[in-house]
Design a protein around this nucleic acid. Structure first.
Lengths: 141, 141
DNA sequence: ATTTGTGCAAATCGTTTGCATCTGA
DNA sequence: TCAGATGCAAACGATTTGCACAAAT
């Protein structure tokens, strides 16, 4: 049972959100943003979203799915995660957190940020600065 | 400093190592193992190794490169690492350690294991057990 | 009117597979 | 001999690109 929608942001809400980040609220961006953020945290692949869109009668091409996913990621609405080389998942939870990775299924699950504490980190090589620290706990399931 | 190459293991050494893990010491496996482990720790892509082999006059097909890399990984001689979805790197350091990832170049660098301490980990979901914990420190360079 | 976005199909890229042919033990 | 290994080329799956057309401001 998927988390039920206490969701479905209104079109105008989504519209404003898109404008706020500098993206024109086109039909497909509106539709995709609504799909993506209506439910709780998810990890969707481009193909997942493509199928979901079609299932909901939204006419959008795969190329646009990719464009949109990347734009949203660049704007901080999504976070791209990829483990092993099985494509990329886009996490609708863009906040700082880590993941469990089920090796068998290739499935990802969020780990609340405060459930993982890194007590010591090496210093970043000179001339660089830490962009982000990703922790993936691989599970044998 | 990097481990100096007092390297170039003798053929017989490599041969024994391969036999020890149950792989027939064929020409190409011998040659590839020698290339891979002659130098210190490295992160090579299948294509890197392919080119390196050809450059050294070793006749081997790309398919065999992949087969060999995967066999070595399965046997614990190598460790597969992949960040973002830029293909897979095979780390000649198969011990437990983490990585710096230079976002601009896509380059990887080992971080000695004891330079990163994780003081608290969430418990693994029931029915699963932790296979490995990967930490990647992404660097803006 | 301009600028920006979209769709489609072809093109890339890394990796895998099928299968006929070799090779090591 | 013969299971196991290799090479080649075709097949693949995810992602990107080029370009003409459509939509947003």
């Amino acid at each position: 049972m998927t988390k039920q929608k206490s969701n479905t942001l209104s079109d105008s809400e989504v519209q404003q959100r898109l404008r706020a980040i500098g993206l024109r609220p086109t039909r497909q961006r509106l539709a995709l943003a609504t799909l993506l953020f209506a439910q709780g945290d998810r990890h969707v692949s481009a193909d997942d979203l493509f199928k979901e869109a079609r299932a909901n009668g939204i006419a959008v091409s795969l190329a646009t799915i990719y464009n949109t996913l990347h734009e949203f990621t660049a704007k901080g609405l999504l976070r791209a995660v990829s483990v092993d080389s099985l494509g990329t998942y886009f996490d609708t939870n863009a906040s700082d957190h880590h993941h469990f990775f089920f090796e068998r299924s290739g499935h990802l699950q969020d780990i609340p940020k405060n459930n993982v504490h890194i007590s010591s980190l090496p210093q970043a090589p000179k001339g660089t600065k830490v962009s982000r620290v990703d922790v993936v706990i691989r599970l044998k399931d």
